[in-house]
């Protein structure tokens, strides 16, 4: 007998015993949707043991349903309001009455043409046409992101680091404030040196680069702990669903 089937029977036996011994299972949910949710949660969690038929079922169901969901979302949230409603507003009178009153904006024919060019990938004779649309997307988004990153990551970061390394408060030296500022300034400078690719990291430059990577690793460590805590709260949420909403063991 396959191991996963053994675990399945063990699970059924466990829940059956719980029910028979009446350990608070009186409050078990009678809502079919909660049962489906609990089954799918357990099916996905069963992957922690090994790949099995339940996981495969939940995985394929999730992928299929979500792909269809996003396709519908793409149609109703992007194609309808951003293209169809712009080119021929009366057509969306039933679903978007506010837009339906506006005059048509015919320059939206350009994105429509780009979209059709993109679909030319499906044509066996001229799939190369789709590259033009692709080039347009990559080019424009790169340009837009350049300004965005230059503004927030470059100028913003530099401005935040323009701080005194010796902090004087009420006429006397602030040791804590000075230490914090030194860590910030040295950390940013050493981090920049680590990501400098035009020079070999040797000598003093290499030392600064190593300090940079140490600072990065310390930051990653702190971030790791913080994120693990957030993940545990997700697990707690699922456990509350299983033990509370489904089994009624939690009040």
């Amino acid at each position: 007998m396959r191991k996963d089937l053994v675990w399945l029977f063990a699970g059924i036996l466990f829940f059956g015993l719980l029910y028979l011994l009446n350990w608070g299972v009186k409050a078990i949910s009678t809502d079919l949707l909660v049962w489906i949710g609990a089954f799918l949660t357990l099916a996905i969690l069963s992957f922690l043991y090994q790949d099995n038929a339940f996981y495969k079922f939940a995985e394929h169901l999730f992928v299929g349903v979500s792909a269809a969901y996003w396709m519908c979302m793409g149609f109703w949230n992007t194609l309808v309001p951003n293209l169809i409603a712009k080119l021929h507003p009366p057509i969306v009178k039933g679903v978007l009455p506010a837009i339906a009153e506006k005059p048509p904006e015919y320059w939206y024919i350009i994105p429509a043409a780009l979209g059709i060019m993109f679909l030319m990938r499906l044509s066996p004779k001229a799939p190369w046409i789709s590259r033009w649309a692709l080039a347009f997307i990559v080019g424009t988004t790169t340009g837009l992101n350049l300004v965005r990153y230059l503004r927030s990551d470059f100028l913003g970061q530099i401005k935040s680091t323009l701080i005194p390394v010796i902090v004087v408060e009420n006429g006397s030296l602030s040791v804590g404030g000075s230490f914090s500022n030194i860590v910030i300034v040295v950390g940013v400078l050493c981090g920049l040196i680590y990501f400098f690719f035009s020079k070999e990291h040797k000598g003093l430059f290499g030392v600064a680069s190593r300090v940079g990577i140490y600072i990065l690793m310390i930051t990653f460590g702190a971030s790791f702990g913080y994120t693990v805590m957030a993940r545990i709260s997700l697990l707690v949420g699922r456990m509350r669903f299983l033990l509370g909403d489904w089994m009624g063991l939690l009040q």
Binding site: F154, T161, L162, P164, I166, V188, L189, L192, F197
Partner: peptide, 27 residues
């Protein structure tokens, strides 16, 4: 990539100059 390294030189120079000026002003 080399051009971006020039950007990093600008950033490092600005931080060093700016932090020194702020420190002199604070003292």
């Amino acid at each position: 990539l080399k051009g971006q390294d020039v950007g990093k030189i600008i950033a490092m120079s600005a931080i060093v100059i700016g932090a020194l000026l702020e420190t002199f002003f604070a003292i």
